[in-house]
Amino acid sequence: MDNNLSSSLNCIKIYHHDELTVPRTVLTALVALLIVCGNTLCLICLRKTVAFPDTTKVFMTSLSVADLTMGVLICAPSTISAAASRWLLGSVSCLVTAHLNFYLVAMSVLSLLMVSVDRYLAITRPLRYQTLLTSYRAKIVVAVVWLSALITSLVILFLGGLHVCYDAMLNICIPITAPGKSMNLQTLTCFVVVILVSYLSTIAIYVRLYRIARNHANRIHDVSDQFNPDNRFHRHPNSKATVTFAIVAIAFGVAYIPMIAIAVDFFISNKGCPLLLCGLASVCTLSNSWWNVVIYSIRTASFRQSLKSLFRRSSLHVDT
């Protein structure tokens, strides 16, 4: 690889942080390993667990595939770049990963939206749920959403042009208007519209589900008090699967809000963010792709048991 070509891909913002090269590389490599291993285990365990309906598993699989692809195609190259403090894989791969990053983030949040809609139908239409949304229809929905997100990403690619640069602090390739210029307006606008609207819709659905569950619990509480006035206690909504996915959705926001804020600030001021803030935001964003596995394991006994069984069989194979 031509060093001049690699250097020319760097954004104008130049950072001198040689003392962070080793720890950042190790941390990025660890995150990549957690993403790949965690989501691979998640895909295996989803086939065995009985805690979720088949349609829900389809949407959860979509989320895990998006996260796994993020680990392989985005986080792994970022590890190489972190070690060299510049992009070593060529201009074409920088362009592809810049837009692929948008595509995979969009698919993550859209998968969360599909899960929330699935939960909404299961709770508000319990008698029709199994006929209204079958496993086959869920797979069709997932295929359509993946294709629509891909088309959107390609539209952004052609509207925004083919200019990208490697941001050494954020450790990612970003689309820009022209060499030496700021982040592309079309890219930022589409990113905010697709990601933010989808995410806010997901949160709104879970807020609605919480209110439904709370009202239902209060009605049960009132009826119970009529027959047993002395047994008064406060009931909380108890839909464990819904709460689990709500936690996953909130975790997504926690992971991506800092990076979105940095991107918006960069577009407005065309200045780099503080070194520590950029580093933490980048790691936090990438880490979201393995948090889901931990949340499933903590919240779902069946999923946790599937993981234990998988590790137990693996250890037996190693011993033999």
Rank of each mutant, 00 (worst) to 15 (best):
L159C: 11
F267K: 15
V145I: 15
K13G: 08
S148T: 11
I195A: 12
R299D: 11
P229G: 02
L159I: 14
T49R: 04
S85K: 13
L41T: 09
C45I: 07
V50H: 15
G71N: 00
I14A: 13
V50F: 12
V243L: 14
S64P: 05
S62W: 01
C284A: 09
R137V: 02
S93E: 09
L307F: 13
S7I: 10
C284T: 07
I295E: 02
S239G: 15
L277V: 06
S64R: 04
H17T: 13
T21I: 11
L121A: 04
N270V: 08
S81A: 14
R125I: 01
S269Y: 15
K181V: 08
S182H: 12
V92G: 07
Y129H: 05
Y103K: 07
A122V: 01
S297C: 13
L27S: 06
Y129P: 03
Y15E: 10
Y166D: 04
L276P: 06
L132E: 04
T189I: 07
S148C: 15
A178L: 13
L185I: 15
V142M: 06
A261Q: 14
K48I: 03
F52M: 12
Y206Q: 03
T61S: 14
V194W: 11
V164Q: 05
N288S: 07
D230M: 08
R208T: 13
K271H: 08
N228F: 12
V109I: 10
W291S: 06
N171R: 02
T28F: 00
R47Y: 04
S78Q: 00
T189V: 13
S306N: 08
S64K: 00
L46G: 05
V31N: 00
L196W: 09
N3Y: 15
R214Q: 11
D319Q: 09
L5R: 10
I220K: 14
Q186F: 12
A149K: 04
I262S: 06
N218M: 10
T124I: 05
A143S: 11
R214A: 12
V243G: 11
T56S: 12
A29F: 09
V243R: 14
V223L: 11
I268H: 13
P23G: 04
K48F: 05
Y15I: 08
V294M: 10
L159G: 09
N288V: 06
H317G: 03
L95Q: 10
A249Y: 04
I35M: 05
C165K: 07
R214V: 02
K271Q: 14
R128M: 07
R313V: 00
D265E: 11
V248T: 09
